[in-house]
């Protein structure tokens, strides 16, 4: 019954989209942009100084969206830690009964600095090549996650991570305010010198914001992971 209703609903939706969509998407081939993207491509080297235009859009043209995006992650991490706090039922016990054994543990610890290094590289080159604060932050968090997965006990400095999380968030807002009260008089205005186009120290505040975003993303992710796994390890300690 459930399947039938599902098929009917989805089928009707698909039929509607196909009948409307066929005519519209039939002539889908273009050799040049006719959107605001072409304007951005033309102005971005001068305005932002970033070689990677996607980064320029994310951090400067639509920097306000990125502030919102970071806030979404913040809200989600808050929610996870509020809700996971009370799980004490040995839900994840099986997962954590085994530690990974010596080789895996030593290996993951040895990998940690290298993964973090790759993460930092990706963050700092965000305005030059694909990457930036979000992927870089995730990679840094992955380093910690690998260690959590393999070792039985890992004490994460929660206090430090909370401080980093808050400072990164406030730092983003502070940069915004510097723009607001600078001669540019606009929230999140890029007022730092642009530097030489295509070099590491260029693009004004874009690397700074990406570093802040990376700290924020990494600390939120470590928070989420540690809260979710702590639910399991707390129950294991109770069982022992």
């Amino acid at each position: 019954m459930r399947k039938l209703i599902g098929i009917l609903l989805i089928g009707g939706f698909a039929f509607y989209l196909i009948t409307v969509g066929m005519g519209l998407f039939s002539a889908e081939s273009r050799s040049e942009l006719d959107s605001v993207g072409s304007e951005i491509l033309a102005t971005s080297p001068d305005l932002s100084g970033a070689a990677n235009t996607v980064t320029a859009v994310v951090v400067q043209y639509r920097g306000f969206d990125t502030l919102g995006e970071v806030t979404v992650l913040f809200a989600s991490a808050l929610g996870v830690s509020m809700l996971a706090m009370a799980i004490r039922d040995g839900l994840l016990q099986d997962l954590f009964d085994d530690d990974g054994g010596f080789v895996l543990q030593a290996g993951s610890l040895a990998l940690l600095p290298f993964i973090v290094l790759v993460g930092i590289y990706i963050v700092l080159h965000g305005h030059l090549s694909p990457g930036g604060g979000f992927p870089g932050g995730v990679i840094i968090a992955t380093a910690v996650f690998v260690v959590i997965l393999t070792s039985k006990t890992l004490s994460i400095p929660r206090g430090l991570i909370n401080v980093l999380e808050t400072l990164a968030g406030l730092g983003f807002l502070a940069i915004g305010f510097v723009g607001l009260y600078s001669p540019a008089q606009s929230f999140l205005a890029n007022i730092l010198p642009k530097g030489e186009f295509g070099s590491l120290l260029s693009a004004g505040f874009i690397p700074v914001i990406y570093a802040i975003v990376a700290i924020k993303v990494a600390s939120e992710l470590i928070n989420i992971i540690s809260k979710l796994t702590a639910a399991g390890s707390a129950s294991r300690e109770a069982a022992e």
Binding site: V36, T43, L47, G63, D65, G179, F187
Partner: peptide, 13 residues
């Protein structure tokens, strides 16, 4: 009206 980052729409917000 307030323009974010000093970039007027359609490019900015």
């Amino acid at each position: 009206s307030v323009v974010i980052a000093g970039i007027a729409p359609p490019m900015g917000i």
